[in-house]
Amino acid sequence: MTMWVAVLVAAGVAFALKLAGYLVPAKVLQEPHVKRVTAALPIALLAALVATQTFTGPHGSLALDSRAAAVGVAVIALLLRAPFIVVVVLGALTAALLRLAGWA
């Protein structure tokens, strides 16, 4: 699969999901169990993304490096209610400065 095909397929699915909510009867998704699980999906996926982006190196091996420090700084910034863009910039600064100082 080329990157273009992947981009267009993923975008098509994203649009179809949005449109489906305007077209389908709500019954199935309103079922409380299903509703709770679908509401929890972003939590599970985003947590998994944080974990893999931060703690895995090449070929999925465990790694502890400046990215973990970036997440630590991000959490502190979020506790202080910093806006998204500030959190992201602080994450980049942390990783870049630690790398400059010689820590992977």
Binding site: A40, P42, I43, L46, A47, L49, V50, Q53, T54, S66, R67, A69, A70, V71, V73, A74, V75, L78, F84, V87, V88, V89, L90, G91, A92, L93, T94, A95, A96, L97, R99
Partner: peptide, 25 residues
């Protein structure tokens, strides 16, 4: 990597997740 963009990505996912962690569940 020199600009810490991998750290920025981790921070971005953390910031997307953060507001959803409202309950113990």
């Amino acid at each position: 990597k020199q600009w810490g963009l991998d750290g920025a990505a981790c921070a971005a996912f953390t910031a997307l997740l953060w507001p959803r962690l409202k309950s113990r569940d």
